[in-house]
Each structure stands twice: as C-alpha cells, then as structure tokens.
Design a protein around this nucleic acid. Structure first.
Lengths: 113, 113
DNA sequence: TTACAAAGTATAGTGAAAGGAACTATACTA
DNA sequence: TAGTATAGTTCCTTTCACTATACTTTGTAA
C-alpha cells in the first residue's frame, strides 16, 4: 500500500495541506503585500499605485494587478466614462488578507531589528 | 525638504514600514513555511526534515536551515555526543510565527479552490 | 494640429533562488 | 576492514521574478 507523502504534522497548523501555500501564492512575492496594503479601505488608480510603490516598474505593476485580478483578490472598476478611468478595489477575499498582513506586522513589530 | 517615500497608508496595516517585509523575508520562500510547520512542538533532525519535505534537495534544506538559524528562528541542538547527532528546534521568535501560519491556513481554508 | 496625461504594453536583459546529481566527513558496527 | 548511517557540501544548470526603458492608445485641452 502506497504511502502518499503524508506530512503527518501538517494538520497541526493547517487542516488541509496547501492552505498556507495558497495564501503564500498571493502574498509571497515582492510587491503584492505592499500593493494590497495600499488598497485597504481605499481604491487606487494605476498611477496612484505607481507613485506609492516606489521603485516598481509599470510592467511589474501591470503583472501584479493582472494576477491579483485573476485570483479574485482585486477588481478593476471604471469610475469615469469620459475619459475612461479605473480604480482597483479589494474584493471580500482580498480584504480578508488584511488579517494575515496584520499578524505579520505584529510579529515584525515585536522582532524587527 | 525631501519627502522620503512616505507610503501614507502604511500605518493602516503596519505601524512601522518594513514589519511585514521582515516576516516575509522569513516566510516568503518556497520551503521555510513548511519547514517551520514541521518543527512546531517537535524538534527534527536533518534527515527527518529531508523525508518530510518531499522533493527538497539537501542543498536547499541546508541553505534554509542556515538562514533560519542566522535569523534566530531555529537553533541546532546536539542531543547525542557519540555519534554527534543534532535536532533543530524553534526559538520563541520562531514559535511565534505559528500565529501567522495559522492565520494563513484559515484564509486558505476559506478561499481555497 | 500640436501637445500632454493616464493607463498601460513591448522588448530585452539581469540576478537570486531552486533543482539535480554526485561527493565528502565522521562515527558506529558486523 | 568493509559497510552503513547521519549530516551535510560542491558543482553545474535552469527557472522566473523583477528591472529599465521605450513605445502605444485613448482622450482632453490650448
């Protein structure tokens, strides 16, 4: 009988394997946590974000926004018809990431430096 | 007067900039969250971890253990003198990461698939 | 009709992280 | 003294996230 990589301690932290990975798939890159942090309770335009995320290239910002949209973390909403202008909003799923960011921030606050 | 990249919304989530980054510096790579999860309440040897983290190369495991040791997340303790045998334990700082992992797991549990 | 801004896209290239396979060092054991 | 186990190290290659910069498209204003 095959033993399918059981990771026996997995359920100590997560009920199903992959749950932590699915959060890290969203938060594990350089810019996404910062980007999501900027959208908490305040929708932003591409240009806003380009200014706030100092050092990001438009290519990377575009790629992050695409990925987060595909993952249903943010949505792009038109707020002006002529000229067409858009803002990115957090979805409920995205908004719930704030809990994780806060827990991280608390940990960082305690142990930073 | 210079305006030093203020990120005005930063304090909405984290009190000081960099706190989230410092947590992600530990948790943001492929293996560290899994590795730390395996050490919660149960010290492990190199060989244990090599078996549990299915697919990890000894090179990568060694590099992760080094980094987490330098960051004071884990400690290497000798539990047998002859032959010399070691186990890796979480420090208090490392143990506190469990809160973050749990929050991530909760989020993943809710939104996975 | 030129000129300017917002919101991206296109092209080209770099660097760090991770993978794979083989190898080493030390200590015990038959 | 040959073999086995633990605990790594070394070398080489690949992948991919991110950077830099130029360009395009759509619409407004002078």
């Amino acid at each position: 009988m095959a033993f399918i990589t059981p990771k026996p301690q997995c359920e100590k932290v997560e009920k199903r394997p992959g749950c932590i990975q699915s959060a890290l798939n969203i938060l594990g890159d350089k810019w996404s946590p910062l980007l999501i942090g900027q959208l908490v309770s305040e929708p932003r335009t591409f240009g806003d974000l380009e200014v706030m995320l100092v050092g990001i290239s438009p290519r990377t910002l575009s790629a992050r926004l695409d990925k987060l949209t595909r993952e249903n973390i943010i949505v792009r909403k038109q707020y002006n018809a002529h000229p067409p202008r858009f803002k990115y909003h957090l979805t409920e799923k995205g908004d719930d990431l704030e809990k994780i960011l806060r827990t991280m921030a608390d940990w960082g606050e305690r142990y930073h430096e």
